[in-house]
Simulated assay, not measured.
Amino acid sequence: MSAILVTGADLAPQALALLEGFEVVYAGKTPVESDLVALCRAHDPAAIIVRYGKVGAAVMDAAPSLKVISKHGSGTDTIDKAAAQQRGIEVVAAVGANAAAVAEQALALTLACAKSVVGLNERMHAGHWDKATHKSIELGGRTIGLLGLGAIGLRFARMADAMGMRVIGFDPYAKNLPAFVAPVDLETIWRESDVVSLHCPLTEDNRGMLNASTLAQCKRGVIVVNTARGGLIDEPSLLAAVRSGQVFAAGLDSFAVEPMAPGHAFQGEARIVLSPHIGGVTTDAYVNMGVGAATNLLAVLNRH
């Protein structure tokens, strides 16, 4: 019986039903490379489903029968794709499986920033009534700039359009965009956006794309939202921009290092709203991503 290694502690029952006939091996919630190498040596899996941790050359070399690495989600930056290609191993992703969940998280963070949801809640619980002194930001009529117009970016674009926002977007690979999304260059995103929201995969080309230079090109008081990958943002530059008022507020669901280390500079910063990379973590998305990952790896194995 061929084995499938899951770099996590579980998989949706609907996904497991598709993988009947395989031995499914779990690496646990926080697998490190040595764990994965040992499991690959012990079980020689035909496929790996990647949930947590990184899969690099050492893991691949420990599994001679490995044909496919399937991401439980859409972002494949934790998989060494060059190493996989050299070894003839296919890398596939469950693109769009968590689009609704992540787009909703982006909307939640945008609204939390614009409406000071977290700060006002804390003040109210402490017995304050700030009606006479507080003004929220109205998003209707404002411009939102989306970096990445894949399944998640376009879903969020629809939400922003429904709220009466002007939607502009940068994505060199996007085609057949809906009429309510105006494609623009990066300079226009920085210059014209009242809200900048990141929805692109992390590559070596765009690492740190939101940095001191690009933040300085933005409107003063811009809102920054990131539900994509933490590495897209230079974190010290964002912190400085929030503290100076160049950035009004930031809503972040992903970080350069995860889990976030205790004492991270973002902690305790009133105008940074934080969530622990759970944008894609809903009951529905868990099933969709598991089924997508299983379906994708079966399609590859069936060709071999």
Score class of each variant (00 low, 15 high):
residue 103 A to R: 08
residue 77 D to P: 00
residue 17 A to F: 04
residue 295 T to A: 09
residue 92 V to W: 03
residue 151 A to M: 09
residue 54 K to C: 05
residue 108 A to Y: 04
residue 209 M to E: 02
residue 235 E to D: 13
residue 111 L to S: 02
residue 162 A to D: 08
residue 226 N to P: 05
residue 22 F to P: 08
residue 127 G to C: 08
residue 76 T to R: 07
residue 272 I to H: 01
residue 215 L to S: 00
residue 8 G to R: 00
residue 6 V to Q: 06
residue 143 T to Y: 00
residue 123 R to P: 02
residue 43 H to Y: 15
residue 144 I to E: 09
residue 246 Q to E: 11
residue 244 S to A: 10
residue 61 D to R: 11
residue 82 A to L: 09
residue 247 V to N: 08
residue 33 E to V: 08
residue 269 E to D: 11
residue 205 D to W: 02
residue 71 K to R: 15
residue 141 G to W: 06
residue 44 D to V: 05
residue 152 I to V: 14
residue 12 A to E: 06
residue 235 E to A: 09
residue 13 P to W: 09
residue 196 V to D: 08
residue 170 F to K: 13
residue 43 H to F: 15
residue 134 H to M: 09
residue 4 I to R: 05
residue 142 R to F: 01
residue 18 L to S: 03
residue 212 A to G: 14
residue 189 I to W: 04
residue 175 K to D: 06
residue 272 I to P: 00
residue 14 Q to E: 15
residue 85 Q to H: 07
residue 212 A to S: 15
residue 266 F to S: 10
residue 39 L to Y: 12
residue 242 V to K: 01
residue 223 I to W: 03
residue 277 H to E: 00
residue 178 P to S: 06
residue 276 P to W: 02
residue 291 V to S: 10
residue 47 A to T: 09
residue 63 A to G: 01
residue 245 G to K: 09
residue 263 G to F: 01
residue 64 P to G: 10
residue 180 F to V: 13
residue 144 I to A: 15
residue 180 F to D: 11
residue 285 A to C: 06
residue 248 F to R: 14
residue 75 G to P: 06
residue 282 T to R: 04
residue 265 A to R: 09
residue 11 L to T: 02
residue 71 K to A: 13
residue 291 V to F: 06
residue 47 A to F: 07
residue 34 S to F: 04
residue 158 R to L: 08
residue 182 A to Q: 12
residue 25 V to C: 05
residue 32 V to H: 11
residue 147 L to T: 07
residue 208 G to C: 02
residue 14 Q to P: 07
residue 136 S to L: 12
residue 167 V to T: 08
residue 280 G to R: 00
residue 84 A to G: 07
residue 225 V to Q: 12
residue 184 V to N: 12
residue 185 D to V: 08
residue 251 G to K: 11
residue 164 G to F: 10
residue 187 E to R: 11
residue 201 P to M: 07
residue 142 R to K: 13
residue 189 I to H: 10
residue 123 R to G: 05
residue 10 D to L: 03
residue 89 I to W: 05
residue 70 S to E: 01
residue 171 D to W: 07
residue 104 E to R: 11
residue 177 L to E: 01
residue 118 V to T: 14
residue 118 V to C: 14
residue 79 I to F: 04
residue 147 L to V: 15
residue 125 H to G: 15
residue 59 V to D: 04
residue 120 L to P: 07
residue 111 L to N: 09
residue 51 R to K: 12
residue 186 L to V: 00
residue 12 A to Q: 06
residue 303 R to Q: 14
residue 137 I to L: 11
residue 287 V to E: 14
residue 158 R to S: 14
residue 296 N to H: 13
residue 244 S to Y: 12
residue 275 S to M: 05
residue 76 T to K: 13
residue 83 A to Y: 05
residue 267 Q to N: 06
residue 19 L to K: 02
residue 74 S to N: 04
residue 231 G to N: 10
residue 12 A to K: 00
residue 162 A to N: 06
residue 157 A to V: 12
residue 144 I to S: 14
residue 139 L to K: 03
residue 233 I to S: 06
residue 72 H to V: 10
residue 6 V to F: 02
residue 47 A to Y: 06
